[in-house]
Nucleic acid binder design. Structure first.
Lengths: 146, 146
DNA sequence: TATAGTGTGGGTAAATGTGGGTAAATGTGG
DNA sequence: CCACATTTACCCACATTTACCCACACTATA
């Protein structure tokens, strides 16, 4: 389970140091083997451990060919996917393409989301936080007591 | 049951001493194992004993993936969640990320809420007290007799 | 006033994050 | 097809941060 957020930096070569806590988790789940791709709803990146990725791949491929929204999802998820691995110092290298998609510069936020993680530019993250207008609450939530 | 409010201080390293009363309660409920995360409605933090957290986690994960409001809730609750434990002196360490979210500086308010606790910056707490406008009452409350 | 319990601050060793150098690999032009 | 230029991957060394521990100050109680 990936929990919690970390404020991290990307260096001039596009390398991102994964926080030690997360690093251990990744090593135990998948030996550090991950897949990085584009998030379809937000301009941020998705990081999956390789095994979880293998699970969702077939679902993506099974999306209906003649539905535009489905094709968009597929094109982004598969088209931006990048098999990757941590280097000796626990860093991952982000391709220029991925950096461009999410508008990553220096300051980033790594956000745990259970099965996967999201990687945001700090700017985009705070913008999202401050936005707050996310439409109607679904029925399931109206009576939810946490 | 967490009852009552405590005015407490955070030191320069982001450590917060839990009041002794509360400390005992935490030890007996969960051996001091807690989860701290963001409150979704207010800019304050939520503190759950680990067992209660385990109960609500599935509810959060079950929220619909393609509803924006539900995703916001999930992104905040899971994304900020931080498994934590008291140090030898009964203090907890708040990550920079959490401090930023709730705007915590030095003077804080720890507010008991039954199953969990809320941690506010003193400033935000008094502002909320003075504000008081929280919109419509739900149907469940219209017939409630206390 | 003494004592136990509580809250606060800070030092230090170990772990973590950061930057850059070099050799291999890749791509390009003649 | 070869030689050169550029990029990439890997490694090492240093700076910074974090976790853990200890010591002291303050408060309440006997």
């Amino acid at each position: 389970m990936f929990l919690g957020s970390h404020s991290i930096n990307m260096d001039a070569k596009g390398r991102v140091a994964i926080p030690a806590r997360v690093r251990e988790l990744l090593s135990s789940i998948c030996g550090g083997q991950i897949v990085i791709t584009a998030h379809t709803q937000e301009r941020c990146l998705l990081i999956y451990p390789r095994p979880q990725w293998e699970e969702i791949m077939p679902k993506i491929n099974a999306l209906p060919t003649f539905n535009k929204a489905a094709q968009r999802t597929k094109r982004l998820l598969i088209g931006y996917a990048n098999e990757s691995e941590m280097d000796g110092n626990g860093r991952i290298l982000l391709s220029q393409t991925l950096r461009d998609y999410a508008g990553l510069e220096k300051k980033l936020m790594l956000v745990g989301q259970g099965k996967n993680m999201e990687l945001w530019s700090e700017e985009a993250w705070t913008a999202w936080l401050d936005d707050g207008d996310d439409g109607e609450l679904p029925d399931e939530m109206m009576s939810l007591s946490l």
